[in-house]
Write a protein that binds this DNA or RNA. Sequence first.
DNA 1: GTATGCTCTTGACCTATGTCAAGATTTTTC
DNA 2: GAAAAATCTTGACATAGGTCAAGAGCATAC
Lengths: 193, 193
Amino acid sequence: MYEIFRQYLDTKIKLTADESLKIQECAIIKKVRKHQYLLQEGDVWKYDAFISKGCLRTYAIDERGDEHVIGLGIENWWIGDRESLLSGNPSKFNIDAVEDSELVLFAHQNFEKLCMDIPAFGNMVSQILQRSFIASQNRIQAALSYTAEEKYRSFLEKYSVFATRIPQNMIASYLGISPETLSRVRKSVSKKH
Amino acid sequence: MYEIFRQYLDTKIKLTADESLKIQECAIIKKVRKHQYLLQEGDVWKYDAFISKGCLRTYAIDERGDEHVIGLGIENWWIGDRESLLSGNPSKFNIDAVEDSELVLFAHQNFEKLCMDIPAFGNMVSQILQRSFIASQNRIQAALSYTAEEKYRSFLEKYSVFATRIPQNMIASYLGISPETLSRVRKSVSKKH
DNA sequence: GTATGCTCTTGACCTATGTCAAGATTTTTC
DNA sequence: GAAAAATCTTGACATAGGTCAAGAGCATAC
């Protein structure tokens, strides 16, 4: 439903009725069922996508056939493959639904036009991009410095919302550890309390 | 020297003489000697910084006292701590010079004004930000999926320029492996050719 | 509501990479 | 340009975390 996105916008920026309408006119509502792909490796990603309901993951598959969860997103997050979007090259990633989900999509050209025409909107988008970048930097730091247990603890601190909704094997993959190790870490963490 | 930055701008965007001047008026030239700090943990980072000459690194120090190289930059790269810049909080990172270097700094407020007043400049900046984000995503993928050898190989492919200028122990840290492991990987990689 | 698959846990064992230490090289300093 | 300091290499050994396998616990589907 578009309503969720409207509410999200309201919390972030002030828009005139006209601007608000312009944005809505570009929006495409998309539903995906659990396990359904939003993007498959090899396809070109052409949208800016807001999650209004549910939960999705971005993952890559390496030569050994192992999956690596690159990103996770729930309500009020944005998702997509900016590399494919920007370069026009086929994506290296898959995005699929962890739960039945709903998204608000914008064709990227329309989206860029909205950013140009509505400065408040453009600024919001660039804010989001900045925060995504900062989050990646922090994730890199965690990947470089943390033990398996520290990775899990800091994940819980930041993203406790995810912890209950996402299967453990995906969390393990997101953290760069094996599901077995995550299971053991969880056991030892819970014992300590 | 500011000239290098002017050339960089020329390759990216077209500016009027007036716009060009406005930008130059905000620029602060800063020289740092090898090993000198540009930013120390605990300080607040307040600039947008372009490297016109030399080479710098961003690193964090963990509780065990070990350094982790979060980022590297050479001529024509931007460097800084966007998290501290955006939040106003003290930085978790250190930035220091790997070689004698020269930077073009902009106080962030001036920089934002330039982005607003000169759309071409603003667009360039947001392009750069996007590419930084994409690069981080790829680095996360590498950290999650690659063996030590694969990390080093892909580093060489992307950043062969660095390979000669940056001490191996820093490259090792950037890749999240020990200097000894990197030394062994290099030996085995060179044998294969 | 019971059968079929997933996901999670646990144990036994393995391996890639880390750690420590010593020597060899290279770089810096005066 | 010699001495001191940093960096890199190599060997021996340690270990965090991976892999494999089996069983338990949960969902999902018909």
